[in-house]
């Protein structure tokens, strides 16, 4: 069961992102990706880190339609969920960090590095998404079986707990975004200086 869920999410995610890695680096887009990383990482990183509201996080609000799942056998349902949610493009992404990933791949020096990072990103995102699902299933089962678990069980504290975790994840996402943005800005500045002062 665990290996099946992991594979259903990680395999399509790895395939989609590996192809994207090739597509984004086959044509040199670094000149576009680096300023984009600096601007996007700087803006959304600062926003998420300080907890302010600004421009909405890019993305779509599409959700997997019930018609695709109703009446489908469990195995096919898992395949549909895995193929749509594993790569991460189809549904809403609550944190801005996700849309930095294609730009980070486009900033890689050449197709080999692009495919390696794309494959790693897809595998990491799909596996992490599956791991979160397995964690939720395990918690729900433990609560249903009456096993004491380290999660709040009544609705209000459960909701507040989830809300608090969202705040923490958002702040963490912001810190990594800002670091990436600053790194991209530093690379741009260094490249400009290297051109000004030839060795």
């Amino acid at each position: 069961m665990r290996a099946g869920v992991l594979a259903a999410y990680a395999v399509p995610a790895t395939a989609v992102w590996a192809l994207l890695g090739l597509a984004l680096t086959a044509v040199p887009l670094r000149w576009l990706a680096l300023p984009l990383l600096a601007a996007y990482g700087g803006y959304y990183g600062a926003l998420e880190l300080t907890g302010r509201s600004g421009l909405p996080v890019p993305g779509r609000s599409w959700q997997v339609p019930q018609s695709m799942l109703i009446g489908a056998p469990p195995r096919r349902r898992l395949l549909v969920w895995g193929a749509l949610l594993g790569p991460g493009f189809a549904t809403r992404n609550p944190y801005a960090g996700f849309w930095l990933l294609p730009a980070a791949i486009a900033a890689m020096p050449g197709p080999a590095a692009g495919v390696v990072l794309g494959t790693a990103v897809g595998c990491a995102h799909g596996s992490a998404r599956a791991a979160a699902l397995l964690r939720d299933v395990a918690q729900t089962r433990a609560v249903a079986a009456g096993v004491p678990v380290a999660v709040s069980q009544d609705a209000l504290t459960g909701h507040l707990d989830a809300l608090l975790k969202t705040v923490y994840w958002r702040r963490f996402d912001g810190a990594v975004l800002l670091t990436t943005g600053l790194l991209a800005a530093a690379i741009l500045a260094a490249a400009a200086l290297a051109r000004l002062i030839p060795a």
Partner: peptide, 30 residues
């Protein structure tokens, strides 16, 4: 390893961290 390679490796590591956390944290979103 040149400075450019080191910078690309650091960027790739940060991107991987974002990929893991964005995948894992999604189920907490309201």
């Amino acid at each position: 390893m040149t400075a450019w390679t080191a910078a690309a490796a650091a960027g790739a590591a940060l991107a991987l961290l974002l990929a893991v956390t964005n995948g894992y944290a999604k189920s907490y979103s309201p």
